[in-house]
Design a protein around this nucleic acid. Structure first.
Lengths: 237, 237
DNA sequence: GACGACTCTCGTACACTGTGCGAGTGGATT
DNA sequence: AATCCACTCGCACAGTGTACGAGAGTCGTC
């Protein structure tokens, strides 16, 4: 049981809750709120300390370094994602609901976009979700390693769709979706690719602000259906 | 042509190359090398200045801020990815080759994992690749918006697979793949999910270091085939 | 050749960051 | 009452991104 482990908050047990002192949950929650309010760059140990009514460096009693703090907040996210109980729906509807939930949660906490490539998902919420997804795929008829492959494929699709979406919103959303500015930007950067430019401008013109979301949702759905079809084909063979 | 645009290096033209002074390419290349050598946290303006034999703040003549520097390096990455000329192979083989190339390039430059959720891909190399992918999908028989949907789906799958892979390597790879340490870690963090734990340990045990890569490649291929099957189904209807 | 304009460099300075250290505090155990 | 230990936190250090403004070098025009 003892011996060197991989470095992560989750490889050490939380300190037992005592009368003085904070809990991991408290700290995770506060970090999450700060991240939601001010983004990844807005989070600093000193600000977090202030928010908790504590001295800046007190946090280091509970956490080895800033990355571990981010691991805590990251796992909170996984806890917000919902997955219907497997038996209630067909597997396609079940995992679709998961995919949509995951997308929404990520868009609500856009800073995860920069963390997924840096921190492993080893927290209890992430693992619990992984466990439940595996059960869902097994119930659907997948077997052995295919369970994990299917799982990975679905999750990859969602991540890969949402992460660039976040980057896009971060750059374009800041300017309050100024259509003319965007058209000019496109015309400038894509001036050597008339084909691509035409499509970019077209999409930019014909769609109102609120319809942008719908369009993205349609695109998300297209890919999701394709992925599920592909997985289903694997199931039948 | 004038007017406010979206904030990105690519919305401003590069300064014309003069006798003194660096070029964007020079700076992009140096940034890339520094990132490859020292990672995202290892990149600082001062270090980059030193590497270029320039004063630290000279870089700000060519670039508005550090993010724009990262945009330059990010686009270099897109330039390393290869896509066979569409007509030479069937569309499935063509986009498969692209997917594998993209995966390898990303794994070679693991710091991109943290950038994709933060910076838009508006550089010439990224757009050129996007343009060529669109042509490939059109040639395959996709039409209208389906071209872009298919494009997005494929790219999402690759990104979503590789990004967590990078995070994993960053945490586990540092400890030189100590098998026992990993087993202990798993047993600790996944102790409440016996099913998942069994699989984690099993995979960890039965596989040698070099086979880890193979296993990941197999998993990647499984999902890729599923995605392509799903897209092909869309093509037939 | 002289002058002015412009491109480009860079030293200094400022506010801010993560975090090591070690002295301090206050409640529980003996 | 004495001891221990979980916990707090001020200070300090090295490092960060970047604003600013003074200078150097090069060009075009008279």
């Amino acid at each position: 049981m003892t011996g060197k482990q991989i470095s992560s908050v989750w490889t050490r047990d939380a300190r037992p809750a005592r009368t003085p002192g904070r809990t991991r949950e408290e700290i995770a929650r506060a970090t999450l709120e700060l991240l939601d309010a001010e983004g990844l760059d807005g989070l600093s140990i000193r600000k977090l300390g202030a928010k908790l009514g504590a001295g800046a460096t007190s946090i280091y009693w509970y956490v080895e370094n800033k990355d571990e703090l981010l691991e805590l907040a990251y796992d909170e996210i996984w806890g917000e994602i919902t997955l219907p109980i497997p038996q209630s729906l067909g597997w396609r509807d079940t995992v679709s609901a998961f995919a949509y939930s995951m997308r929404h949660v990520m868009l609500r906490h856009p800073w995860v976009g920069s963390l997924i490539g840096r921190l492993p998902a080893l927290g209890p919420n992430a693992l619990s979700m992984s466990d439940r997804l595996r059960k869902t795929f097994r119930l659907a008829g997948f077997d052995g390693m295919d369970i994990d492959y299917a799982n990975a494929t679905l999750t990859a699709y969602v991540l890969g769709t949402v992460i660039p979406e976040i980057a896009w919103s971060a750059t374009m959303g800041g300017e309050e979706l100024d259509k003319d500015a965007m058209r000019e930007t496109f015309e400038h950067v894509a001036r050597d690719f008339p084909d691509l430019l035409e499509r970019l401008v077209e999409v930019n013109e014909e769609v109102t602000v609120s319809e942008t979301d719908t369009l993205r949702a349609v695109s998300f759905d297209f890919g999701l259906v394709a992925v599920l079809d592909g997985l289903e084909a694997r199931l039948r063979s």
